[in-house]
Design a binder for these strands. Sequence first.
DNA 1: TTTTGAGTTGTTCGA
DNA 2: GTCGAACAACTCAAA
Length: 459
Amino acid sequence: MKSDRRLVLLYIHDEVSPGLRARGGASKWWLGKSLTEHARHIENAGGHLTIRTGATKDVLSDVISETGATAVFWNRRYGGPERALDTDLKANLKQDNIDVMTFNGRLLTEPWDITTGAGTPYKVFTPYWKAMKAAYRAPDALSAPKSLSGPDIKGVTVDDLGLQPTNPDWSGGLEETWTPGEAGAMERLSDFLEGPINTYADDRNRPDLEDGTSRLSPHLHFGEISPAQIWRAVQHGISADNFDESNAMVFLSELVWREFSYVLLYYNPDLATENYNSDFDALPWRKDSDASKAWSAGKTGYPIVDAGMRQLWHTGYMHNRVRMIVASFLTKHLLQPWQVGEDWFWDTLVDADQAANPASWQWTAGSGADAAPYFRVFNPITQGQKFDPNGTYVRRWCPELSDLPDKLLHTPWEADNAALKKAGITLGKTYPKPIVDHPTARQRALDAYDTLKEKRNAA
DNA sequence: TTTTGAGTTGTTCGA
DNA sequence: GTCGAACAACTCAAA
């Protein structure tokens, strides 16, 4: 690029173009923090981030006429409505003789790059993962531009976007949990690489451990760190013998699950609303808003489930193991449509992602790609005992159960009156009775899922 | 074209 | 307490 060319750094806050899914509350909070950080970073480098609101098409055309810009650059998006908008935008700009260049800033590879031998997109994770390992080499990092000078055109402030919650401000727990922005992301990565990566294969399943997982998902989602950076850092560590290779590869495989979700989204734009496997259209969900309300409020009476839902509400995050447990509980024990859970997560997760969130919900429900077999119904009691063996996680998020002995912590309904009294618990008052009986609910789920089999056989 | 082996994360039951 | 088998059948991916 010629050195006399100047750059307008522009963020368009577009809430009006058709088809876009409105951001959830937790996502808005993170976005606001992240934009503030990003703007500060750019100011420090001598540049300026311009923020505008409105339809992307209109904003861009204004900015082009104000500045005389001759080219526009952006990173590609993969959701259906986003692709339609971007394709249209590109065509219009080209018609006006504006150069357009788009880049992959979000993924390791484009969703269409890695295909089966037959040229079709992968639908099973393991062969996709093998192909990715064989094909992908992280590019070397480019150095940051020396100067970011550009015209300082008018825009709005981050505050003007109204992204922070007020009345009530529920963001305290998020605030104390996260450091949005590139610096926070880099710190998370280096902390993770300094130790936890070497025990990742087992410890990633332990919600009671503070550092079992990387917790990079929201940073990845908002582009504060790229999967290529992570891949490169991990590969370097493996080559230098700094990391235990098998543990490190499990971590990379999780990064590739994220890629796989984007393949699914790219080829299935309705991923967040429609069953990937349409057989599931016939599944007799129960529509029970009391049940789903108890679930989202963390009042099911199953401690590991409630702990997870409260961690989510408080911090905008839930440990991955617990996500599977609560998702299985909602879709199987309570037989609520997976979309109900997907929606709730969309609103409350700081890492809510249009590919990973629906892909994971569908995986758990059984309707997704490479999904869990229908008879796999997580037992919320044994999962709690296995992965939160000392009850640290449950005690943290359900403090009203704290004084129960470890042995009863995941089954408070089995405590006798003396034990309950000693722990200061009144079931049904200070902590709910189980909303469903596990064996009964499990059987009900298996029966409901069995009807799909019958329908298939009849067809 | 046909065949073959395999497929994220579990639970329960009975020996 | 531990261990292996059953829980289904289907689709995918590659040979």
